[in-house]
Design a protein around this nucleic acid. Sequence first.
RNA 1: GGGUUCGUAGCUCAGUUGGUUAGAGCGCCACGUUGACAUCGUGGAGGUCAGAGGUUCAAAUCCUCUCGGACCCACCA
Length: 975
Amino acid sequence: MSKELEKNYDPQKYEDSIYKKWEESGFFNPDVCIAKNICESDADTFTVALPPPNITDKLHMGHVVMIAVTDILVRYYRMRGRRTLWIPGTDHAAIATQNVVEKKLLAEENKTRHDLGRVEFLARMQEFISQTQATIIHQLKKTGGSLDWTREAFTLDERRQTAVKKMFIDMYKDEVIYRGYRIVNWCPRCQSTLADDEVEHYEQDAKFYTFRYAKDAPFAISTTRPETKLGDTGVAVNPEDKRYQSLIGKTYNIDFCGVKLNLKIVADSGIDMKFGTGAVGVTPAHSLIDYEIAQKNDLPVKKVINEDGKMADDLNNFSGLSVIEARELVVELLKNNGLLEKEEDIKNNLSVCYRCHTAIEPLTSRQWFIGVDKKLKRLGNQSLKERAIAVAKENQLKFMPERFTKRYLDWMENLHDWCVSRQIWFGHRIPVYYDIFDQENLDGFLYLKKDSLNIDIEKCKSLASTDKSMSFITNIVPGKNSQNDIIVTAFNFSFANALVKNGVIKRGDLIKSIDYVEVGKCKKWEVFSDEKKIGDSYVQDPDTLDTWFSSGMWTFTTLGWPLKAGRAGESGSKNDLANYHPMQFMETGYEILTLWVSRMVMMSLFALDEIPFENVYLHGMVLDKHGKKMSKSKGNGIDPLDMISKYGTDATRLSLIVGSTPGNDMKLSEEKIAYFRNFTNKLWNIARFVFSIAGETRLGDSPELQAKTLADKWILELLSQVESEVTKKIESYDFSGAAEALKKFTWDEFADWYLEIAKIEGRKEDMLVFVLKKLLILWHPFMPFVTEAIWQEMNNERFLMVTQWPVQDSSLKTKPAKKILPEMEIIKNIVSALRNLRANCKISPAKKLRAVIYTENSVQLLKNNLELIKGLRTGVTEIEIAKKGEKISKAAYASVSACEIYIPLEGVIDLKKEEEKIKKQAEDLNRLIKGLEKKLDNADFVQRAPKDVVQDQVDKLELYQTEAKQLKNQLKYLK
RNA sequence: GGGUUCGUAGCUCAGUUGGUUAGAGCGCCACGUUGACAUCGUGGAGGUCAGAGGUUCAAAUCCUCUCGGACCCACCA
């Protein structure tokens, strides 16, 4: 009785149930593998953290690449007996996710987050997450990644919150984190700061204005942004510039469009004398470069654009105008007063927010920074930047492909302090607290939640009138302050203090009802994580941390940090940090090398003084078949889940592996995926055939193997070659090459030759089962589902997933020999030649033919394998074999492997046509021969080239000459 | 402006330190359906390796330049 498989492999039928079985087996978890003796407790580790997909994402092809690549290695090393751990999780992606929910809120309820308030808004966020997070996790499981779900993490869950707080506090204590008043990238729409690399640049048409500030100004300046000139506090010139040298150091009081400017002329060698007028208005509050010039020259910083993208209060006519309106007004006034000297069209780069594409405003703001140049005792008196550079230079941290090391180093070397505070609500809130009743300079305001306090307004008014330093506002006009749409009452700190002192409000009640505080004005703060300490007296900083702060900690928070490291060699997740850090591998797209990878390195170095991972493999982008980026708006994206349900996970994954190289973009088409679906089906049918030959009872056994025939020896030899080739290629990250070598063996050798031979020779149960099993093992990392499905059908008790990878015999040659088992090659060559002759002469395969083969040395070999030659679809039913014989005329002739083959053709085809074809072939060959002869006549070549190369050429020439002779013979015999 | 990367058959791409007649899949053409597989088989046509120069006995491969595409970084005040 043989077991029968379905005619076609149906991935839908197997994938989900197999994944469930794997999960239930616990083998994704190294602790279970150790307990069940799949690996030793002190085996080498292979640890990876899955780059956590954003919770708002759907899975895209990039994710599948990442999983396919990593899963190949994870499964491979698991089968090799390493302690293998791959930790899954999701990322809260602060700004991105908040944007999605805010858009939704606006569309569905026409509300902003301020309408809801922080608590209610975060509740909505939570609601949203609970749906989307489940989606992405479900999708991750569909990809077949062998992830240890018992260790699943989320960048904003409770453990990560504890870790982030500790990290912040530790960094603060070491003065790596500091509070600074600096120029930052501000997105007026997101109402938040952005990191430098979250800003994108687009070229646009702009006007370049050249003008004098006023009639009495002794210089003209040029700018594309005249409105910012309201904030100028200086004018910079090149110290070499003779036009302005005499002015350096002087100060001018100027009326610029009705606004008083106090401009000091300073020298800066960075100024290009040839560009514009050679004099640059310095706007410290709204340009990074100007800010730096201002710092060097002690110029004051004057902020003229507010966080809402509108002009500041004290600019008379300009106040409250948008940036664009202000620009138009400035230009108009300049024109009216005859101050505008030039107006040119130029191209310049507009900076926009990478999330919402709103133009960003550089402006000064009080923010939290990570000082990358701060020397740290814990890092041997090196800075984060220095250590992060050193680990890459010392090759502790390796990149694949290597060229990305350079990009990493370039980026690191130019790194500025990193602004980590974000003015959004969704994320890790900064653990900084302010006692607003204990501020030396109480000029800040606090805004109350709508209807949160019942206060006697009249009483407040009378209280306020007693002291000039106290003020309060009610019913603020919406829009004047970006935070105030819902605010009806605001106090300054002095007034709040007075209210508490006079018993109008209880301190705790006041703090509870605060919606927003201008903590930027506070000069004292505390940093701690102690919930009890917070009590009723502190206001927490409203800001949250840059999303990369927490995702930068991913590699060690997923292993339990800040819990103690635990004990290496002992099982259980409490020992993860000791057992599995640093990780061995990180796989991600090259586009976030700087955004994320570099941050993980710094965070890990700070927390543990260890690199987060040893190897970084960067994959390219998946483009559509025309080489365009896949995007939702273009609608050219290929949805991996559609592909998975249509063609199966294995085919989808393989299509992303074969034909792609690390670091390079790849084009993907549905046809390519379909091709690999065909291949999974081919493998399935190989198994189906083996099952039909070998009885069911035998499938589970590991038969004692006996190679009985030539073909048996040949296929085993090939198999062992391919084993070592695949192993080698996986370890050197050549997944495409490994899969191709395997595919070649599977399809071109095993299926096309050996299975056909098996049908003829018969009694191959053991051989077929043996090779099939090996094939399943070798294919498993690449195609986990179909291989496991077949394995399970073979009644194997153990999972294929934890079956041992064949251990390599190190004596095996690394390069496959050109010809394995020459006798088998002779047979194959003859079969090919027979097919070839027939096809060339366009003889229908149905037409039975007779052949005559003359051979000096292989008579016995051919006679032994006569049935093979006849049976392997040559359509030759009668073969005469002899050492030598009489010449045969009017026959197709071929000579391979020292065998002369004749197929009498009289009455079968048009002999004249055939003759012409052969003549043409002979001409081509002669050309090759002449070339080769010339090469061998060249003394330089013969002397200098390696001997084996020369020998190759000599052999080749001989071969050609023989072939040429054969063609002559062909002509001869055709007549 | 600085840097990276790519340009190989009609299409999508391999081609590892220079060394067989530059490979594969799709598509195309011809023939076929044989005891697993039409999601299949056999055979074939198709390339001056973007262009020019150089190094070398030997270049798709190394160097220089040009053209064309993609990307990264910096940035014009």
